[in-house]
Nucleic acid binder design. Structure first.
Lengths: 226, 226
DNA sequence: ACTGATCTGACAATTTCATGACATTTCAGC
DNA sequence: GCTGAAATGTCATGAAATTGTCAGATCAGT
């Protein structure tokens, strides 16, 4: 379960955000000032913090600084009242964190939150290499071998296999694959995934029509088993 | 913990930078004049120095020169008030690693800082020489030979090959090559990389249209294999 | 000004990708 | 076990993205 901490002093906005986030399936913690926010973070260590820049007592910026000083790596999404503040806040992190200016559209905010979580939660545990049966794969070198001899694989095939392998045994839906491998740039039909999986099987399975490692879970998605 | 020293006389800018840097998770030291800055450097040896060109008493330029004269290797990022070409060049010649002109966007500055730190902290040991097939290269002398006879190569070709060889087998993206080989002097299009690679192949490969050592990984980048 | 290095943009060659039609498999309900 | 609808496998094809190549413009050093 993914937990989001929202620190915001305006009760109506706080309420609205919390409702929407819960509606999206997140576990939601709330705080209406920086002190409480910091305590919440320490006790519950959420996966994401949504932080209002303007807060009573401890400002959002200060809280951010304190959290980082505590060594907290949790991604932070800032809510700023004016876009002039955006530049200042953007110093947060080009790659990991983000900001949204008020008044914001809930839809956009949710999209940003999903994006941040996707980036931070998946980036971590992708394997650099993989071995199973007579296959060896080095994802950094983009090299695949079977019984020692090289196998040509495409970028997408490497990416798909890497994700499946990162969560070996677990079923990954086509939508997840589309999100992780393709990102938000393009939205191909989920059928496309099947084709790439077919490619993987043709290249890596002993008998592509009876796959032993890249398995189909009917009605759900695919899974990799070593 | 990564430590950044900021030398800047304008208190509001100093404060803003310090806040943002702390928020990014850096340990921050501050100084408002060159003398103090130099002392700080000696006592704390930070990982990066952000230096205002215009400072009271000892100018940023002088400080930069002095530090380098002291043998200090710490990367220096210069803040310049105006986009005076002369100042830029001087700063770079004196050993500054990068510069940003005021008024700067915090976002850009933070990005530059991250980039410098990434470059200096993950610095790969570049090889001084390289041999493969019938080719011998001495990167220090900028000399290349094939079957014993000299081959003319350009500086960029040497630099690209050296980086590829330093991480032999690994795929290097065009963006990485642009960052490492070109640095901040210029921002050529990634297409340019291809051309230099073509040059390398023409000079070093047995059959440039079927490269055996400087390989393309379609959709990703290039890699060198011995 | 001359020279070689470098950069850029155009075009062609190549590889990869996405899509839809059709075949096959799976599974729920008989 | 059957049967049929839904899901998946398979394949061909054209589109799109990526890279190779080259000529000319620009830049830097002499």
């Amino acid at each position: 379960m993914t937990t989001v901490l929202v620190v915001e002093d305006d009760p109506s906005i706080l309420r609205g955000l919390a409702d929407n986030l819960r509606c999206e399936g997140y576990d939601v913690l709330t705080a209406s000032d920086g002190e409480t926010g910091r305590k919440m973070q320490q006790e519950k260590s959420p996966d994401l913090i949504v932080l209002d820049l303007m807060l009573p007592r401890v400002s959002g910026l200060e809280l951010c600084r304190k959290l980082r000083a505590d060594g907290v790596q949790t991604p932070i999404l800032m809510l700023t009242a004016r876009s002039e503040e955006a530049d200042r806040v953007l110093g947060l992190d080009l790659g990991a964190d983000d900001y949204v200016t008020k008044p914001f559209s809930v839809r956009e905010l949710m999209a940003r939150i999903r994006a941040i979580l996707r980036r931070t939660q998946t980036q971590t545990n992708l394997p650099d290499e993989l071995r199973f049966a007579d296959v060896e794969i080095d994802f950094r070198k983009y090299e695949a071998r079977r019984r020692g001899s090289p196998v040509e694989m495409t970028r997408k095939e490497f990416a798909i296999l890497r994700l499946l392998a990162a969560r070996a045994g677990e079923v990954i839906t086509r939508d997840e694959l589309l999100n992780e491998v393709w990102g938000f740039e393009s939205y191909p039909v989920s059928r496309t995934v099947d084709n790439h999986v077919a490619g993987l099987r043709a290249k890596l399975e002993r008998d592509a029509s009876r796959p032993e490692h890249i398995k189909t879970v009917h009605g759900v998605g695919y899974k990799f088993v070593a």
